[in-house]
């Protein structure tokens, strides 16, 4: 197996690898078509159609329970872990059907990483947290270098370089969450999915994570679920608004209502439900 390519070490965020330096603007990473997800007999989201572009931040906003996390988990097959979840429809990743038989979910998750709502570092040292993904993936290079590069890349190196061997649980909540992001980029995925990564953090820690996201978006494709509309407006290029609908049979289910450039969606939404939500007039 080839070791994954590494970017050079350094105190400042390293330059982008050549093959990523000039992104073709319209490259599509995910194509979602007619996606519905069921939990048991209950349809949580219905008929979602959307595209996600490469190396940009796509935000997903909307009221609680409309299926944002559910859709996000379809992108790296985390729904497989829920025994009664069933995914119908098409999720294509670089034109490959993520849910086809030949696809190995382990391989999918190596390419498409995930950061969770609550910081969930392993109860191990900072070093081992970063090294975990590469280790289980069979990385054969120099782990010390990899850890340093990754932490530098995640703008965490200066804060933790003296604590590499102490437990990650001793870091602050914001540091823990940035460590989780660093841990994700250590396996060099192409996409990072984030489910409300800042919801348990204070404004300063949130600002640091937003900075980090913007920098990472030069190299990674990021999809972020957030309840913070300012955050969506600040960091994302495109925003998807999800809402709940009740169909003719009285069944409530989540829908993708609108997806647009973030500026357009917030200033000039085409659906009145989007407008109600972002102006706080919903519910």
């Amino acid at each position: 197996m080839n070791p994954p390519s590494r970017h050079g070490p350094g105190g400042t965020p390293p330059p982008l690898p050549a093959h990523l330096a000039a992104p073709p603007p319209s490259e599509t990473v995910f194509e979602v078509g007619g996606l519905s997800v069921f939990y048991g007999g209950h349809e949580a989201v219905r008929d979602v159609n959307m595209n996600i572009g490469a190396r940009q931040i796509t935000a997903m906003i909307g009221p609680s329970g409309c299926g944002k996390s559910t859709v996000l988990r379809c992108f790296n097959r985390m729904n497989d872990l829920l025994p009664d979840a069933r995914v119908v429809g098409k999720v294509r990743y670089h034109n490959e059907d993520l849910y086809s038989r030949e696809v190995d979910p382990i391989e999918v998750r190596r390419r498409i990483g995930m950061v969770f709502q609550k910081p969930n570092p392993f109860p191990k040292s900072v070093y081992d947290n970063i090294a975990y993904g590469p280790r289980v993936g069979g990385f054969r290079g120099n782990l010390d270098d990899l850890v340093e590069e990754t932490l530098t890349h995640a703008a965490l190196w200066d804060e933790v370089k003296d604590k590499l061997r102490t437990s990650a649980l001793a870091l602050s909540g914001g540091q823990q969450q940035r460590l989780c992001i660093a841990r994700t980029i250590a396996v060099e995925p192409e996409v990072i999915l984030m489910d409300e990564p800042c919801s348990s953090l204070d404004p300063i820690a949130t600002a640091k994570i937003e900075d980090l996201m913007e920098r990472l978006a030069q190299q990674f494709t990021i999809v972020v679920v957030t309840h913070n509309m300012q955050q969506a407006a600040r960091v994302s290029e495109r925003t998807a608004f999800f809402g709940s609908e009740i169909d003719r049979d009285g069944v409530r289910h989540g829908r993708l209502i609108e997806l647009d450039e973030t500026g357009t969606l917030f200033s000039n939404p085409s659906d009145h439900r989007t407008e109600d939500y972002i102006s706080g007039r919903f519910g």
Partner: peptide, 27 residues
């Protein structure tokens, strides 16, 4: 052992057995 630890491990591309062997059992 919290579910979030298993999810973190799996989301980094670990297999089920790696997750059990390296995270769940030690904890």
């Amino acid at each position: 052992v919290p579910q979030s630890i298993r999810q973190a491990s799996l989301s980094l591309g670990a297999t089920r057995w790696q997750t059990i062997r390296r995270q769940v059992l030690p904890a």
